[in-house]
Amino acid sequence: MLKIWNIILSCSLLFVFSVANGQMKLGDTLPSLKLQSDKNTEVELSSFKGKTVLVDFWASWCGPCRLANRKLVKLYDSYKGKEFEIIGISIDTDKAKWLSAVEKDKMSHQQLIDSKGFDAQTAVAFGVEELPSTYLFDTAGILIVINPTEEQIIAQINK
């Protein structure tokens, strides 16, 4: 019986460590993941190093995400000329609904999709458990704030 408990405990610890390693932590670098854009091209996340980057996980069916999109559009329009990029990553499973939301919300910043919901490769890599979730990277591609405020984003842009 003790042997079974040891096996269960070992498996549980292995699971906990593998899940924990799949989550972005402060100090981690912008990952080299490639995703399809709304322009039907493949985009690599790490190609944005050199800019302040806000990675925004969202979905067309997420009400709070759609409200946040309004603020992100204004923020991007105000700061896009200052080496600032917003990368929207949708975890929609329906590409047509995603594309419709991109158009309706008038999002001109980079839009990508990883269409497997919360099981999407990027959502797992970042440790996304709720939407919207945002990750702020400095110009060196280092994660500096998870779910930053608008003030934190602007302060980083203006550094």
Score class of each variant (00 low, 15 high):
Q156A: 09
K80F: 07
D28L: 09
G63T: 07
Q36N: 12
A59F: 03
T29H: 15
I153T: 10
P132S: 05
I146H: 02
L112M: 05
D114G: 11
R66T: 14
L33T: 04
T122C: 02
K106H: 08
C65Y: 03
C65I: 04
K82Y: 09
L30K: 01
F48Y: 05
G27S: 07
Q156F: 05
S60H: 03
A140C: 07
N21W: 06
K97A: 15
L35I: 03
D92Y: 12
L14T: 13
R66E: 15
A101L: 06
A101N: 05
L112Q: 02
Q121H: 12
A123V: 09
Q23H: 06
D138A: 14
S108K: 08
S10H: 13
I91Q: 03
E85A: 04
S47H: 05
K80E: 00
L75D: 02
Y135N: 11
L143E: 00
V19L: 12
K34A: 03
E85F: 08
L45H: 00
I153C: 04
I113E: 00
P64V: 12
K49S: 01
I144N: 00
E151A: 10
V128M: 00
F15A: 13
S37N: 07
E42Y: 11
D28S: 06
K49A: 02
W61D: 06
Y79Q: 08
D28W: 06
N21E: 10
I153R: 03
K74G: 13
A140V: 08
I89V: 13
L143P: 00
A123R: 00
K106A: 10
A101P: 10
D77E: 12
K49M: 09
K97D: 04
Q121D: 08
L30W: 02
L45E: 03
E44K: 06
E85I: 08
I146R: 14
I91S: 02
L131G: 05
V145M: 02
C65M: 03
L72I: 15
